[in-house]
Nucleic acid binder design. Sequence first.
RNA 1: GGAGGGAUGGCUGAGCGGUUGAAAGCACCGGUCUUGAAAACCGGCGUAGGUUAAUAGCCUACCCAGGGUUCGAAUCCCUGUCCCUCCGCCA
Length: 428
Amino acid sequence: MLDPKYVRSQPETVAAALAVKGFTLDIEKLNQLGALRRDLLEKAQSLQAERNAYAKSMGKAIGEAKARGDDIAPLKEKGEALKIAALKADDALDAVQRQLDDYLRNVPNIPDKEVPSGKSEEDNVEVRRWGQPRTFDFDVRDHVDLGERCGLLDFETATKITGSRFSVMRGDIARLHRALIQFMLDTHTLEHGYQEINVPYIVNSESLFGTGQLPKFEEDLFKLTDDRDLYLIPTAEVPVTNVFRDAILDATQLPVKFACHSPCFRSEAGSYGKDTRGMIRQHQFEKVELVQFVHPEKSTETLEQLTGHAELILQKLELPYRTIILCGGDLGFSAARTYDIEVWLPSQQRYREISSCSNFRDFQARRMQARWRNPETGKPELLHTLNGSALAVGRTLLAVMENYQQSDGSITIPQVLQPYMGDQISIG
RNA sequence: GGAGGGAUGGCUGAGCGGUUGAAAGCACCGGUCUUGAAAACCGGCGUAGGUUAAUAGCCUACCCAGGGUUCGAAUCCCUGUCCCUCCGCCA
């Protein structure tokens, strides 16, 4: 959520910034509701003050009246009238406040100044490229063919068990998948100073509101049908970021850096017919996620570091990639700036997204009330939150399969993964 | 699943219908004292919103959350959430 005070005081500036994201801020509506709210608030508060003062005076008055044997009913009458007036004023205020909240909760984060303008992914800007796509002297297979050939990647069985957009992995492919997870977690915990964390894969709606998936994007989620208001996580970002919901951290604790492996569940409603082949877009996939909580002045540089941590995984795996900065129109609801990392897929002859690293500034922190105590002021202030995939495991697996395939359909295991595979060097 | 007991400020913990935004202790900050520190003593010390030039005052809300009773609720009632103890079941 944006700071309501900031929106109120600089509506034109906010509106201009949000336009980059393709969002039209209804200044008229905000001004109107804001002015109305202020009037109603003042009215409600002064009525309440009157009511409180009267109630306070009543303690003594009733005692005295009783001592004299007087009827106390007349004394209560005025109190009753004040109560009714105050409740009425509260109701009027609540109605306006709710409208204002509903509106503000659905306003996206303001993009950084450096974010390029643009409507869609066409307008994203490449910032760097690493590695040279390999040239093959044979016809490349995609991961589906490669998996079928060794019999260890099976989409048909998954369809039988559950439905479309699921997969079954067996044997060395399942092991390679697991090796990738171990490798990623070890790299981030041992080399980049992240603490490994394991969290629930089912979360409540408050957590989803905190990170910004709710209220706007409920259709992307799997919701449990019992009456407990729970959802499967679409990303570990949700439980891990909410670790510090309603918390006040000490300045000495910062930065907090978590690395989390988890499955992710996405309904993929609205992506029918898109990436239907293979494991690019699945309802269930696994991911190693990095999450950081930092001092507000550090988040800009932290995003660069965090993106670098994700890139290093691809470098160690020797997979060619490029990094792009998302344009305003492609930027997510909660993000102020996002870098996507795209890995080279020989079967598609193009780069495909394998990681997304974002700075949310105080947007999520405000929704979650995740704060730190500033020693300079002694006051709690909002943190900045960031996260990034490092990496999406399923997509990394298929990138390894395709980039490391041999003419006979076997797959060479990248050097850094061999220790995690019992020094095995090839699959199939 | 059954039977009980809880939830109060950064922490511990009183209060159980009216001068309680909340005793007391700890922690923290400022001061006195001291060569320095500790101890002792004095003072301060929640968050959010409104008003305001103001981080000054004043006002409002908040004692798990949401409803209710009452002129008046941290205190009484209802619902929910979470925690604890015992029994049962269970990976």
